[in-house]
């Protein structure tokens, strides 16, 4: 294990910080690649075309990537709290479930599932209790906003009942 300075001898290299720098570099690359594919045949009297800003921003993002890599190398990337994946997974699962369900099960069921899974992520009551509560809550919101105020929200079997 090599360390740039004596001070850092005991700390392992900050892999996550290098990963952030790498992601920024990838972002910069994607923007520049996309800009290179903008082919405008429209008359541009402004001389600053559709690709100019993307190139400039790609350059700035790349500068940040380099800066971040340097910060990682010097070890001044900030310390982080250890992360627990469980609760995050519950919530992300809830969001994904909602996206999948909202298409055919409608707003109330999909959002109810999101509510239940999020509550579970925060250490709430069991799912058999929270999901039905969420569905009832979402259904009431649906009635209020969709029927009362003509907001068009996705419909499913429950929504078609009324």
């Amino acid at each position: 294990m090599t360390s740039p300075t004596e001070r850092d001898v005991r700390t392992p290299p900050d892999r996550a910080a290098y990963a952030v720098a790498a992601l920024l570099a990838v972002l910069s690359g994607v923007i520049a690649w996309d800009a290179a594919h903008i082919s405008s045949t429209v008359a541009s009297y402004s001389r600053v075309g559709a690709a100019a800003f993307p190139y400039a921003i790609a350059g700035l993002v790349m500068a940040c990537a380099i800066g971040t890599a340097l910060a990682a190398w010097r070890g001044d990337f900030p310390d982080r709290e250890p992360m627990e994946f469980g609760p995050v997974a519950w919530i992300m699962g809830g969001l994904v479930a909602q996206i999948v369900l909202v298409g055919f099960a409608g707003f109330s069921i999909a959002t109810g599932v999101l509510f239940g899974l999020t509550a579970r992520g925060f250490g709430g009551k069991p799912l058999w209790l929270t999901i039905p509560i969420g569905i009832v809550l979402s259904f009431l919101l649906y009635v209020l906003f969709s029927k009362g105020l003509q907001l068009s929200l996705p419909q499913g079997p429950l929504e078609r009942l009324i």
Binding site: V143, L144, K147, G148, L149, I162
Partner: peptide, 15 residues
Amino acid sequence: FKAAAGILLAAAAVL
């Protein structure tokens, strides 16, 4: 009454 009707139109579920 008119106002109440307006609110009902806005808030009530239309069957």
